[in-house]
Every structure is written in C-alpha cells, then in structure tokens.
C-alpha cells in the first residue's frame, strides 16, 4: 500500500509549454514536470505550475499565464492548442492525453502572454453581424410572435456557441492573410434570423455577412464542424446562409423595395 502510494507520488506529468512574454516577443518552449494526481485536467496542472513555478531543469521561472472562467466548457475562455488540437483546457483530462503534453496558444489570435490570447475580434464580429435582437424602444411593444417549440429546440443547439475561437483556429481561411470573420459569428446570424422577432431584421444581418471578410470567404474545408466542442452544425449553418444570402443578393439587384 505505502509502496504504491510512493510510486504514485513519484509519477510525474511532463509538459511542453510554448511561452511568449507579449505579442511581439519571440516565443520559446519551456518544459515542466509536475507530480501526478488522479483526475487532473490541464488547468489544475497549470495551477500546480503557478503554485510552484520551477521548470524541468529546476530553475525558477515565471508562472505560465492562461485564461479561464467557468471550468465546465461553457464560457470558452480557456481554449488553447493541446497536443496540436485547439480545445478547452478545462475538459482536457491529463489521463487521456499523450505525454509530453504540448500546450500552445491559439495563434490565430493575438497572444497576450503565454497561453492567453485576445479574442476581441470575435466579439467585434458579433457586433458587425448584429448578433442580437433589437427590442429597445420608447414604449412597451408587448409580447413578440411565438416561436414554434421544435424550432426553439433546434435553435438551442446553435445558441450553445461560447465564442471560444476553436473553429477560427481550425479554419484554413482564418489567418493573417485574410479578414474572414470565421464560422462562429456566421452561425449566430442563422440563430438570430431564425428567431421570430430577430427575423424582423434578417436582411441587415445578411447584408453584414455579404460584406468584407464575410460568408464569401468560406472555402468549405469543413474543419470547423469537426473542431467545434459544442457540436454546432456550423457547415449546415454556412450552407443555409449561402442560400439566404444568394436570395438576398438577387433581391437587392432584381427585387422590390421591400427589404425584409
């Protein structure tokens, strides 16, 4: 009993962490070894490094910086590239990962420090595509139209998007050479256009994604739908929006002055 416990205590987890002090500094790799505990995730391992910031060689170093929030794969803040795959570090269980565990920031976004990235561009995109339902006014408009229950259930799946950035990291067309906003905000357009009140501003959202960096930049590699941790049917959303924007395009050119 004591022998196995000692064995367990000696078992170490190896990490290779790609670090960088700020946006413009050169990235470097630092190795860490931390004692194994049962049921660890990548975040609890990073917390261990923060508690005891010594690298594998035994030199004292700065604690590794990363982002986190809910710790239950709902907020999207703790996304990073783990063993080559972008995903949330809270649900990346150490027992299921091949060692050394390689942690890198999602380079699609500007790196703030170490594993921490700035996902502002995603929130800016949500503003660009008007991913909300305007109901503000000077008086009470009363209840909106009812939403069929079946559609609500389907729309709920699209609403699971947590703006984590994994689909942007996976997309070959989201990079420094292109201004493609990526799959996540596009799918939000489909979500808000499906809402009975949201549909009243349908054309505004479609026009927005027909602009620069919008839907036209999708190249159908379909990596996003593979990568999405929430299983959102991103490629189905994109294809459905293709149909909607084409109709909008013809309506704009040939159609009437009736906008919605």
């Amino acid at each position: 009993m004591t022998a196995t416990e000692t064995m367990k205590e000696q078992k170490m987890i190896r990490f290779e962490i790609y670090r960088q002090d700020d946006l413009d500094s050169t990235p470097y790799m630092e190795e860490f070894e931390i004692p194994y505990r049962a049921n660890m995730n990548v975040i609890s391992a990073l917390m261990e490094i923060r508690r005891n910031p010594f690298n594998k060689k035994g030199d004292k170093t700065t604690p590794v910086a990363w982002d986190m929030g809910c710790l239950e794969e709902v907020c999207g803040a703790c996304s990073m590239v783990i063993n080559g795959t972008p995903r949330q570090s809270c649900t990346a269980l150490v027992d299921q990962l091949e060692q050394p565990i390689r942690l890198e920031p999602m380079k699609t976004f500007p790196v703030v420090r170490d594993l921490q990235v700035d996902r502002s561009r995603m929130f800016d995109s949500l503003k660009k595509v008007k991913a909300w339902i305007p109901i503000d006014g000077t008086y009470d408009l009363g209840p909106g139209p009812r939403m069929p229950e079946k559609r609500r259930q389907w729309a709920y799946e699209l609403s699971k998007c947590m703006t984590c950035g994994v689909c942007l990291e996976a997309c070959p067309n989201v990079n420094s050479k292109s201004d493609f906003i990526g799959p996540a905000p596009l799918s939000q357009v489909r979500l808000f256009n499906a809402h009975p009140t949201g549909a009243m501003n349908k054309n505004e959202r479609l026009q927005a994604i027909m602009g620069d960096g919008g839907l036209g930049d999708c190249g159908n590699s379909q990596n996003c739908v593979q990568a999405c941790p929430k299983g959102i049917p991103l490629t189905t959303s994109i294809a459905a929006l293709n149909r909607d924007t084409n109709l909008q395009m013809f309506r704009n050119f040939f159609g009437s002055d009736n906008e919605v």
Binding site: G84, P172, N173, N175, K177, S178, G219, S221, Q222
Partner: peptide, 18 residues
C-alpha cells in the same frame, strides 16, 4: 490566402480543400 492544416485536420473535406 489560405493556410493549409492537414496535419491537425486530416479529414476528407480538408484534403479536398487543399
């Protein structure tokens, strides 16, 4: 303007994209 990533995503569609 694309940045191909078949090593991370070796799916059929990603290969077709490339």
């Amino acid at each position: 303007t694309s940045r191909n990533n078949p090593r991370q995503y070796g799916t059929f569609r990603n290969w077709m994209f490339i």
